[in-house]
Amino acid sequence: MKVLISVDMEGISGIVHPTETNPDRYDYERGRVLMTAEANAVIAGVFDAEPDAVVWVVDAHGPFRNILPEDLDRRAHLVRGKPRPLGMLAGLDEHTDAVMFIGYHARASAGPAVLAHTMSGDILDVRVAGRSLGEIGLNAAMAGHLDTPVVLLSGDDTACMEFSELVPSAVTVAVKQALGQAAAVALHPQEARERLRRAAADAITQRASIPPPKIAGPLDVEVDLYGPYMVDLAVLVPGVTRVGGGQTVAFHAADFADAYRLVQLLVQLATIKPG
């Protein structure tokens, strides 16, 4: 069986501040060590349950070059670098049997939630068929589009609740209790890793009873962008229109895969600043 583990950084135990997640800041190296160690705990749990599994670990934070390759469990394949198809889910295909979200965070405007945002600080909200979705919802629905269950999520308690609303039968591990955007009560990293290893094994064992999250097309999608100039760029994309004032664009997608890819493109366009 193939298991894809998508690992973000903001939801790792002990991490509460941008200095721990930004490659240009002083505390980033500690964040990388913590992130790699939690990924290893989950890999170990998968192999505890399925010794013959094929495990892909997807570095899914920022530059997608955070996990320390030399310290990662050698049994896993590491996906790193960008740009790449499907972004945080690179490697997901019809042969993937289960997906896990590790170190994930709540969507923009959620709270209290540690380092909550949606894709980037330039995206204020994404609504698919009227439902607000952050990275958890967008990635879960993309997996579901390929009939792949998301069986495990770890992060703060708010992220876990967000995921449980989408997939009530999946396993969650709250490695910290959010006090705010940059504050939490966190488990000791070793305790978090032990819980993650057990949870990963449990999630693999239970995967047949966890349904893939589905959002059927066709779909109407709205994206709220931080700056009006981002809207000016977005409407250059065929099919994207300006609605509701100066910060919202909308488009129609045949299915969730099309919606997911276009949201990814809008996220990238939003990083282009006026000259």
Rank of each mutant, 00 (worst) to 15 (best):
V7K: 03
S132H: 13
Y229G: 00
A174K: 12
A53H: 05
A216M: 07
D258S: 14
M161H: 13
A159N: 08
A254R: 10
D73G: 07
D73K: 07
G121V: 03
S154A: 11
T118E: 10
T36R: 01
V223Y: 05
L179E: 15
Y226L: 14
E38R: 08
P149C: 11
E70G: 09
P211G: 01
R131H: 13
L89Q: 14
I215Q: 04
G137Y: 02
V243T: 14
T241N: 01
K176H: 03
M9G: 04
R74V: 12
G14N: 07
I215A: 15
T21I: 13
P228R: 00
V16E: 15
L225D: 06
G14S: 13
G81N: 03
E20R: 08
M88T: 02
G45P: 02
A186K: 07
S169L: 06
L86S: 01
V175I: 05
E70L: 05
M119S: 14
L219G: 11
I43L: 07
V240G: 06
H17F: 04
D220P: 01
R107P: 01
L166Q: 06
L262K: 11
N40K: 13
D97E: 14
A257N: 08
G14F: 04
Y260C: 02
D147F: 02
A141F: 10
W56E: 14
P63A: 07
L4V: 09
I5M: 03
G103Q: 11
I5T: 10
M88Y: 12
